[in-house]
Design a protein around this nucleic acid. Structure first.
Ligand SMILES: [Mn+2]
Ligand SMILES: [Mn+2]
Ligand SMILES: [Mn+2]
Ligand SMILES: [Mn+2]
Lengths: 218, 218
DNA sequence: CTAATTTGTTAGTTAAGACTAACTTAATAC
DNA sequence: GTATTAAGTTAGTCTTAACTAACAAATTAG
């Protein structure tokens, strides 16, 4: 088994390599708030464990094994978040920090039970996909709300770059997963949007907000 | 806050000082499976933090602060066990190892929620009392089944020195908390008991077993 | 009461995982 | 194409929490 520390490196590598497929020592260092020499050291250790490909001065790449183990930790994280929201009554803005700890619990049975009680959920409370027991996961082809046009009718499918503050902001605006939104207009100078939903007939959302909302058109 | 390691020392000190009120370095060392010099070192560190009274060659005594913090960890442990059994469908023999990990989670809200959902339980699945939010707890005046006499009618109130194996043994015999038992006879040479309960009309329980079962007479 | 045994302490070592300082390689700017 | 800046590595240090070996104190036995 891996230490809690290694597990957090794995998750960070996985998250950061989303697009390019590789990560720089610098990025990883910043993401984890750990100085670069410490990261270099840990990468050598994890390379020895076949979790990551490491060569001096080259980008870091997760091995197949590393990717799978990362995905399984993310599975535990997202199952936990879903469990806390669905079965214990937490708000979606409260669960990340608890899941950050519980994801390291060693008990396949606990997470199997969560999955069972939740009826094998496919998404976490923020709309992110929950990897299956083999670490397989795929993001659906969502668009960002910021890329939509006036008169588009969309449904909120996921929230990205979620901080507690951002989620509390959405709570105050009564914006949640599954919400149907109509785009009334887009301000050309700051790309903010005026949208309509439920009993909010004219709500303005900044581009910062719109870039963090993934939507499905319908 | 304290480290996971310190928390485990606190729990061990609390558990071992049940009777005498103090613990030897040797006992603590054996209980935690940690060599004596390591324990001595840790006691000095915890004495500095005012968790334990420590003087060379004297028995270890928890401070009021140490006792309270230990009790609050035990509260988290027992709430978790109760939650796993009552809300997630685990057997009483499956929950200890999970609780051993979850007791270290830093989230007052998680445990507040468990307590609320369980309707502020007073006992864990093994009959042990759950300390309140101030770390207060008291064992009721139970007797050991081994100390009962023929023809006594008793109710199983708690199980002590619980190992998974012992609990599985009780499962096979259909012995559980709340079960009403009649003592038919006691074998004088090995103190084993012949008892009657439910549809078990003549079950023999060894003294080892009877010493681990706490009962209420009625 | 002394001897043997058990218990406890001191000193020194180790591994994990962090850090800083100094140096090297790679990337970017001019 | 050299100079500057940014990124990455090496070497050495620190803290936590473990260990062993050696010694000292306390307890128990005869
Ligand atoms: Mn999360
Ligand atoms: Mn984590
Ligand atoms: Mn337990
Ligand atoms: Mn524990």
């Amino acid at each position: 088994m891996h230490s809690l520390v290694e597990e957090n490196y794995l998750k960070a590598l996985f998250a950061l390599s989303k697009d390019k497929g590789s990560v720089s020592v610098n990025d990883l260092s910043k993401h984890l708030n750990i100085k670069m020499p410490t990261v270099t050291n840990m990468m050598k250790k994890m390379a020895f464990k076949k979790l990551v490909y490491y060569e001096s001065y080259k980008p870091l790449i997760l091995t197949k094994k590393g990717k799978k183990e990362a995905a399984l930790i993310i599975r535990k994280h997202r199952l936990t978040e879903m469990y806390l929201v669905e079965k214990m009554g937490f708000g979606w803005e409260e669960v990340h920090n608890i899941a950050e700890q519980i994801e390291h619990i060693k008990s396949p049975k606990l997470f199997a039970k969560m999955a069972e009680l939740l009826d094998y959920p496919k998404f976490d409370p923020h709309g992110a996909p929950i990897p299956d027991i083999n670490g397989e996961m795929e993001w659906k082809a969502y668009s960002k709300l910021s890329e939509c046009k006036p008169d588009d009718m969309v449904k909120i499918a996921a929230v990205i770059n979620t901080t507690d503050e951002f989620l509390k902001f959405l709570n105050r605006r009564e914006i949640h997963l599954g919400l149907k939104i109509k785009i009334k207009s887009v301000e050309p100078f700051d790309n903010s949007m005026v949208v309509k939903y439920k009993n909010h007939l004219e709500e303005t959302l900044s581009n910062t907000v719109c870039k963090r909302l993934l939507v499905e058109k319908f």
